[in-house]
Design a protein around this nucleic acid. Structure first.
Lengths: 217, 217
DNA sequence: GTCGCCATGTGTACGCTGTCCACAACGGCA
DNA sequence: TGCCGTTGTGGACAGCGTACACATGGCGAC
């Protein structure tokens, strides 16, 4: 009868949210197989639409992949914020201690690496699309908290300087060092030589890496 | 023991060195466009051979890419050895000082990052194929000096311990930390947020990163 | 209300890719 | 000498990204 059983029964003509549907399909494919698994035709198939429909919303496959990548950066930010929330400052009424700042920076690193290990496909996709600093703060790359991973590192580093955990003279561009270190370990873990190491060893390497950053920054 | 030489590039039927030709073509494509640019059919085309001929030497495209990737690791090792040679130990009759060991480790990092900047396509290809520790010493990944990048880091770290530049207790798995740090910066430079930074800034970031490793390892 | 516009979707087609199959020629070994 | 395994060829197929022409229908202007 007239009871609509199928959620997308007749995508008659207007889809309504095709762009979002394609993006979501893309994210799902990225989750399963990384950036190379993001296939334009398959995305349209999952959205129940003809292949060319995608071109009304994305210039080409690269544009779709870029959008998926940005979304992945947002997920990464979410995971970092989650880790930050799990390690709240011990101080009262918003006062930060030096230890708090160190814990914050550590939490950022832990969250970053946790994301790499929990969602390797999304992680690889997030950092597979060439980008540069001028777009490091684009809103599209932010998580639900409204901040991009790059910003989160920056915030933690600012706290380090404010509490005296790090000399101010070393603050400039310190994001690069912290980020590079953690990013590198992430890559080595998910498809570099550290692949296949058991969780305990990875945890250990993570811990030692963060120690190194703490000491050497 | 036969002197293998083919004065005319006769492509009558037997090619003679098809496997090598395909590999070389693959490396050239990787140089220009990274791992995604190594295309099996194009490789056969450059070798002047029909597409299917490749399957006599490589199981599939992935196998070709793996071979190219291994070759790239060898080039990476070459570049590191070159940097090592440019920073010879100051000590006499093979005696290493602590400063020599630090210079060695630094040279390894410099060479690694120089390779990333000079040959971004090869660099990305080298580390694009999932691998694990059990193959970190495969002869196919070694450079002309017979050592893989992983081994070179290890040698430098051993020197650090021997000369007292690093406590022996921290030696175990220190490769991972050093490698991850430098690898991460390499990735950020060639297609991460540090892309497009001028050489001076990259040099500066490199220097600070190596300082951090030196201090924090 | 009606009409027309244009954003959004469909259909068809092309060249490219990786890969499977059957077949052909060479060269070393019996 | 004749055979046979190695190495190459040719043809075919499905899947991909994407260009071009066409269809639809919701929305604002009249």
């Amino acid at each position: 009868m007239s009871d609509e059983e199928q959620p997308p029964p007749r995508s008659t003509y207007r889809h309504g949210g095709l762009r979002d549907a394609l993006l979501e399909a893309g994210v799902e494919m990225a989750r399963e197989g990384g950036p190379d698994a993001v296939v334009l035709r398959e995305a349209t198939r999952r959205a129940g639409v003809s292949p060319n429909a995608a071109y009304r919303h994305f210039a080409d496959r690269e544009a779709l992949l870029k959008a998926v990548s940005d979304a992945c950066l947002g997920f990464s930010a979410d995971r970092i914020e989650q880790e930050l929330a799990a390690h709240p400052p011990t101080g009262h009424d918003g006062a930060f201690t030096e230890a708090d700042a160190r814990a914050m920076l550590r939490a950022v690193g832990l969250g970053y690496l946790a994301f790499a290990r929990e969602e390797p496909g999304l992680f690889r996709t997030a950092y597979s699309v060439p980008d540069d600093l001028s777009h490091a703060f684009d809103a599209g790359k932010a998580g639900r908290g409204g901040r991009t991973p790059f910003q989160l590192v920056g915030i933690a580093l600012d706290a380090m300087v404010e509490t005296g955990a790090m000399p101010a003279a070393r603050r400039q561009n310190a994001e690069f060092l912290a980020w590079a270190t953690v990013h590198g370990l992430g890559m080595l873990i998910i498809d570099g030589p550290l692949r296949g190491l058991d969780d305990r060893m990875v945890d250990f390497a993570t811990s030692r890496l963060l120690d190194m950053v703490d000491r050497g920054l």
